[in-house]
């Protein structure tokens, strides 16, 4: 047995119910894929957080991109985003109807395509690449989200005892930002291997038990105190912090980015096309509660019943890498079923 599993068991005996949120969808993936929840004592709850880019993107933003694509504007976005259902269809459906939708892995792939609008999603990890596109004069529909403002909301609303902070986001923004956040719960920055997550859980439990609020960096090989200064500099040069609507969490002040140059901001450039976009979320879909960690994917009555990775009804069922429902669907089926 992993030595930290044993240490967690010993610590847990002296504690009541502990609620730990893994903020990042990549962490959720590792936890589910390796069955880490099953090896933890029953009073240690790992709760999946909002760290799935396509899950927290608002329905309105998705509908705007579909409207642009169907209007003949060439668009590009990252992988899973094209599968997220909008009010009437997904970008994939728009593509099947003839719209020019390019799926990319890196923003560099469209750096020479000045007639293409980039639908920029993701957290701090992907914002430097968007900043680079803005430097090159590419028009951007910006739906980037910032993690720290969301955590401030979650720690109060969800009674989280401690956070496992996202590893990739931290490589960009650095370790210090988490301390400056000043939330009443300890945090541990973790890598993505199962052993790293188990150790991070142990370190976090130890902090919670001792009522310490500090931030511990358990991913020091790539996360530095000030992050990546080149990345943060180009973000500051090209983008400004704005309020933003999150799926399930409403409008969070100062939680998103927008291009500083209005001529490169697709929300402004294409305002005439976008003015008629009306969005409506599927009322039965409970993605909003899932990204807040209020319910488990299986608590949603659509889960596996009409909502599956091949035919997702909600955003959380799309990404097998980061979406809580898709991950639960892929790895969560219990062996006795």
């Amino acid at each position: 047995m992993n030595e930290y599993v044993q240490k967690i068991e010993d610590l847990a005996k002296e504690m009541g119910e502990v609620r730990i949120m893994e903020v990042c969808g990549g962490h959720t993936n590792t936890i589910m894929r390796y069955g880490i929840r099953e090896v933890l004592p029953s009073n240690i709850k790992l709760i999946s957080g909002p760290g799935c880019p396509v899950c927290v993107t608002s329905q309105y933003d998705i509908d705007c991109m579909i409207e642009l694509a169907l209007s003949g504007v060439k668009v590009a976005t990252y992988g899973d985003m094209i599968n997220v259902p909008g009010t009437k269809m997904s970008l994939k459906d728009a593509q099947a109807q003839g719209a020019d939708v390019k799926m990319i892995y890196s923003a560099d792939q469209i750096i020479d395509e000045k007639d293409r609008v980039f639908f920029a999603v993701g957290f701090e990890t992907t914002t430097p690449m968007t900043a680079r596109l803005l430097q090159q004069g590419i028009t951007v529909f910006c739906a980037h989200k910032l993690i720290p403002p969301a955590m401030r909301v979650l720690v109060q609303e969800m009674k989280i005892d401690g956070f496992i902070d996202p590893g990739h986001v931290s490589t960009i923004i650095g370790e210090d930002i988490w301390s400056e956040l000043d939330i009443p719960a300890p945090q541990v920055i973790s890598g993505f291997k199962p052993e790293q997550l188990i150790k991070a859980t142990y370190v976090l439990l130890d902090l919670i038990k001792n009522k310490e609020k500090e931030v511990v960096n358990e991913y020091p090989e790539v996360v530095f105190s000030k992050g990546n200064p080149i990345a943060t500099k180009i973000i500051e040069e090209t983008m400004k912090v704005v309020d933003s609507e999150w799926r399930g969490m409403g409008t969070i002040p100062q939680s998103s980015l927008a291009p500083k140059d209005p001529k490169l901001d697709a929300r402004i450039v294409y305002k005439d096309i976008l003015k008629n976009v009306v969005s409506q979320e599927n009322k039965e879909c409970r993605c909003g509660e899932i990204v807040r960690g209020m319910i488990e994917p299986r608590d949603c009555k659509l889960f596996g019943q009409g909502c599956t990775p091949e035919n997702p009804q909600g955003a959380c069922m799309v990404s097998e890498s980061e979406g809580a429902c898709a991950i639960a669907f892929k790895y969560g089926k219990s062996l006795s079923e």
């Binding site: 990549g26 390796y34 099953e38 992988g79 985003m81 599968n83 599956t308 091949e310 990404s319």
Partner: peptide, 24 residues
Amino acid sequence: VIVQTRFGKKILSMPSGNIVPRIC
């Protein structure tokens, strides 16, 4: 199809949809 991982057993399901890289 069952995969025995370092920590426990998980079901390996039939892949569905296109293979797409993660975003963050």
